[in-house]
Amino acid sequence: MILMSRTECGVVVGILLLLTALLVPEVQHAREAARQSQSKNNLKQIGLALYNYQETFTTLPPGGTIREDGVAIHGWFMLLLRCMGDSPFAECIDYNKPWDSPENIPMSEMWIYDYQIHGVDADYSTTGFGMTLYQGNPNLLYRNSSVSLEQLEDGTAHHWLAGEVAGNYQPWGYPFNWRPLGAKLCDGPNSFGRPVWGGGHLLRADGSVTFFSDQTAPEILKAFAEAPPVATRTQTAVPDRRFDYGAFLWERIDLQSDPRADNIYVVRMLRKKWGSPILINVYTAANISPEVRATYKYQGDVLHFLLRIDASTEIADALQATTLKEESSSDQFQANLKLLKSIQAQLPQADTP
Rank of each mutant, 00 (worst) to 15 (best):
I220E: 12
G207P: 13
P277D: 08
T210K: 13
F243T: 10
A217R: 13
L181P: 03
L203H: 09
T210G: 03
I278Q: 05
F211I: 04
L202V: 06
D214M: 10
V266F: 06
N281Y: 13
I280L: 15
I264F: 06
K272E: 15
F243V: 10
E219I: 08
Y283P: 14
E226N: 14
A223E: 14
L185C: 10
Y245F: 09
Q235F: 03
S213T: 15
G207S: 13
G207T: 11
P229C: 00
F192D: 01
T234P: 00
Q256L: 14
I278L: 11
D187T: 00
T236R: 09
A205M: 02
F192P: 00
L203I: 09
V230D: 00
D214Q: 12
F192H: 02
A247V: 00
L255W: 00
S276I: 08
W250M: 07
D258G: 02
A237W: 10
T234Y: 04
G199C: 09
F248P: 05
E251V: 14
G199S: 03
T234Q: 15
W274L: 15
V196M: 11
G198P: 04
A227L: 02
T236H: 03
L279W: 05
P189H: 03
I220C: 01
S191N: 02
Y265S: 09
R268D: 15
D262W: 10
